[in-house]
């Protein structure tokens, strides 16, 4: 069964004559346990797709089915216990005046999780932080540690699907490696499905099996990471993207 099915998705902003489309006729499937990457330049609509799935953009049309549930204009409570999102900037996505403990227990309380106390300890262990970080405020944490807290929060209600919006782009390369390793491990342990947005092909190639390349709101092509490694991209745009990212790294 597919974890996520998106068919003919259109997302727009603005009203009347000002209406401009951010996503145009996008169709893709993500299998259970798969990790799907979305790449493209800024403004290509890759984050907008994630936001549309998460219910953060009201203006969309098309069909979306997530974990067997057909999505309407509003998301149900059970949807959010299956799907969670991790945002780009860990400096902006944590409440500056709430401790790690409060952030996590609030998320669990909303979903009616039992034994919050023991679960927080387990969650912090899962993301490699340990109980010592439980009563810290975000300003007492480094960027990598904050992103770990953000990931712990998204795992608080035991979701099966994680939407990752450039989870490492605000971090140093050395910290990025830690977070990517964590994501790989968590996926294996909890059998998670990922949809990840990134502009870094190296990062996507590390974590995902299939990749959708976006340009101006449309899918340029969908290819497997294997094909990408062998530079077997069909469209010239993907080829160009591949070349520039290989050049910038080597």
């Amino acid at each position: 069964m597919s974890a996520v099915m998106v068919k003919d998705l259109n997302v727009w902003f603005g009203v009347g004559a000002d209406r401009s489309y951010a996503v145009r006729d996008v169709t893709f499937d993500v299998a259970d346990g798969e990790s799907f990457g979305l790449v493209g330049e800024s403004g290509s609509g890759k984050s907008t797709i994630l936001r549309a799935i998460a219910g953060l953009v009201p203006t969309w049309s098309g069909d979306m089915t997530v974990a067997g549930e057909t999505l309407g204009p509003k998301r149900s409570k059970s949807f959010y216990s299956k799907v969670q999102m991790v945002f780009q900037d860990p400096y902006a996505s944590l409440h500056p005046r709430q401790t790690v403990d409060r952030v996590l227990s609030e998320a669990m309380g909303l979903h009616g999780v039992q034994n919050i106390n023991t679960r927080i300890g387990k969650l912090l262990d899962d993301v490699g932080l340990g109980a010592g970080f439980r009563f810290r405020y975000p300003h007492q944490l480094s960027g990598g540690q904050r992103q770990r807290v953000a990931i712990a929060r998204s795992l608080a209600c035991n979701p099966s699907i994680l939407l990752l919006d450039e989870p490492t782009s605000a971090l140093d390369v050395s910290v990025q490696a830690e977070i990517l390793n964590l994501l790989v491990d968590l996926r294996r342990e909890h059998k998670l499905t990922y949809i990840m947005v990134s502009h870094d092909l190296g990062v996507v190639g590390h974590l995902c099996e299939r990749i959708g390349v976006m340009r101006e709101g449309r899918f340029e092509e969908v290819l497997t990471v294997e094909d990408m490694r062998r530079s077997k991209a069909e469209s010239p745009y993907t080829q160009h993207l591949l070349e520039s990212s290989i050049n910038s790294v080597r």
Binding site: A177, N181, V184, D200, L201, H206, V225, M228, R229, I246
Partner: peptide, 15 residues
């Protein structure tokens, strides 16, 4: 620690 498109690894090295 940089993920490499051409040489995939299961785990990246951590400093």
């Amino acid at each position: 620690s940089v993920p490499d498109l051409e040489r995939p690894r299961d785990h990246l090295e951590v400093l």
